[in-house]
Design a protein around this nucleic acid. Sequence first.
RNA 1: GCCGCUGUGGUGGAAUGGUAGACACGAGGGACUUAAAAUCCCUUGGCCAAUUACGGUCGUGCUGGUUCGAUUCCAGCCAGCGGCACCA
Length: 807
Amino acid sequence: MKAEYLPTEIESKWQKKWEEAKLFEVDLKKAKDPYYCLVMFPYPSGSRLHVGHWFQYSIPDSFTRFKRMQGKDVFHPIGFDAFGLPAENNAIKKGKHPHDSTKENVDYMIEQYKRMGCTYDWSKILKTSEPEYYKWTQWLFLQMFKNGLAYRKEGNVNYCPDCKTVLANEQVWDGKCERCETEVVQKPLTQWFWKITDYSDQLLKGLEEIDWPEKTKIMQRNWIGRKTGIVFKEKVKDLEFDIEVFDTVPQTFMAQTFTIIAPEHPLVAKLVEGTKYEKEVMEFSNRVAAKKASGNFDIENEMEGIFTGRYIDNPFGTGDLPIWVASFVVADYGTGIVNCSAHDERDFAFAKKYDIPLKTVMVPDDKEEAEKVRNLDYCYYKADEGILDTPEEVKGMKWKDAYDPIVKYIKKNKLGDMGVNYRIRDWLISRQRYWGAPIPIVYDPDGKPHPIPEEHLPWELPTDVEFKPKGKSPIANSKELKERTEKIFGKGWTPEVDTMDTFVCSSFYQFRFLAEGNQKEFIPKDIEKKWMPVDFYIGGPEHACMHLIYARFIAMALKDFGLVTNGEPFKKLLHQGLITNKGAKMSKSKGNVVSPDEFVEKYGSDVFRLYMMFMGPFTDGGDWSDTGIKGVDRFAKRTYSVLSEIVNKKGDQSSALIVGLNRTIKRVTEDIERLHFNTAISALMEFLNLIEKEGGCNTETAQIFVRLLSPLAPHLSEELWEVLGGKGFVIEQDWPKFDEKLIVTDTVTIAVQVNGKLRGNFEADTGVGKDDAIDQAKEVANVAKFLDGKKIKKEIYVEGKLVSFVV
RNA sequence: GCCGCUGUGGUGGAAUGGUAGACACGAGGGACUUAAAAUCCCUUGGCCAAUUACGGUCGUGCUGGUUCGAUUCCAGCCAGCGGCACCA
């Protein structure tokens, strides 16, 4: 009668023992070989952990178990991104206060993580909605304010009508709200911003040093969008001011015949003030600006413009350039004013529509085509082989070679100078929602903002409010907050009533895990030096231009303030793949979320974890299907029944077993190291098959097998370790080492190819020489058939693998 | 439009210049069983040949190229996914 594998019993038994032994609590000071592994913390939004969570959290957990056995002092904490919209919306739906529903959700999730068998250090858990945490969110705001990186600005901001709050640029995806997919509109408001733009170049430069997926780096580079070009300084005719225009393609600047300005641009009014054009131009500009702000502007079909009556005063000695307002000019990129020529498709189309004169300074080499371009039959632009004819200095030069000479010409003639522009905008951190960290600012009776002194932190979120979103900050109605402000600061003083974007909360949590609840210091310096940056960070690719850019910015700013030493928070980053259901992302609204519970119930956590890993590479994800879970279940059951019988078995083993064991150690070690858990499991399956084929193994081998299995199936391995008479916990054992010499077998199979086609193989002694191998290869019957009567031109030997004949 | 990633049996996937399809799932056949489940054994990319089982041939999105040899490297294309986008 074979022993029966009872996962539920085994798993709760070992989860209890791990917790009692406080196995995963790390002494941050004493640790000798720190390894900080962090998975982006979850939102407690009321949904239970689905299979995607199991994939995201259990696999890194297995990885840290592996690192732990390799002797690293692993710090693997978990926390909850508890402030913010998902938690607040969940509370509204349940009709509970966010504080209560968040607590319930967090408690439930903790139980689920424990059920998963995760090695988290539960003594250092963080919840961003606790005053002990958001004290530091507010402290961070004060540091930013003190150092001039936090400022208030009035202007058009992104507003989500459904969430009833403003959004950062990073949270607007394809014109829609990142959370609820509602069309975002522009709204004029005074809001707090953080100057991430001061760090554009540092954010770019830092990317060179970190071990991140190239894809993510490219996304961040595109988001920052640094572009160099020429800034032309030009005089407006008959008016007292100059304007600047930005041009990244200056080679054809001599063809510029008109200038366009964005309808929202403040200079529009100044250009037309007191002229006969004023009424019409301002009406046009206001109408188009409003349409653009509402989000209803059709960029494809609504190319509109109006002449302002003004001119740029003969900037290049080729005449004045009429200034037009054009609907498609982006107000806050470059200077919001653009010089136009026939060598730009859109400018060309605009000029044709409004009969604005054009001229060409570049033509193709082909005579006929050149004539067409000169006739303005079509737009000829950004053509590598285009030949320039003016200015004189570049005459006859190809467009692709003309950039530097043109820049030199422009600088020499003092027409303009090199300039840089960025796509990235400052980070809007104000939110008109209840469930967030209050911005630690008060206003004096004149409305001037003042930071709340640190001694008053945490500046607590009031509870005497109706927290449902109405478009105005809910805490504005708190009596308690008003009284608190006046009591501390004086009569007539008022509190800031917006809360902070949750991405602020999550931009520094990697430091606060290391502070272990310290309320006096943000992070002890020696601990920060020792543990930061995070060695290995894991999370979804959707954060490439949100959390991952904010967290880098904050770390860089804190470094400049002298508060931390590492400006790059995450040394190595990896994105887990997405688990989809029938090709679609799992979401509550689609109702296609797959719960792991019934599988965990039936097969146990270990089998479910194994299955997650066996599905494929961690970075790939995949479409959910439960076909195949039986395979790993059989493997777990067989492992248990086969190995639990190998108690106290001593003695020599067959060379096949010895070689197999050493190869398995090598494969599993290398596969886990490169996060190929699927092939690590395959290697163990193959070795188990071999053990069965060989009629068993000795206890030492069985124990090594269990150690190799333990990161992947932690509970089962603890149980087997105990059955096999191992001391202590298997997770505390050393990772097995293999003997390079024992991987080699006595003979090898060598394949033989003739003209690149496989024609046979033969057994040879390991280390057989080239000549010997070739002689033996010729003897192989089927090979001889193909060599018969032919002349061998070339003989190739790949050691221990292959012989190839060319005939 | 620009940038990036991906494309392998019925399915998940393995192999990053050297025997394509490891390891599994599923399917088919068999053993055990009154029966079913579970378990065990055999077969399993297509086609041709063979069943005393020798072998051959095609095959990793498509078309070419480099190489003795390409899923792997190069060029062009197609499809899917992701990011950016009237950004001057």
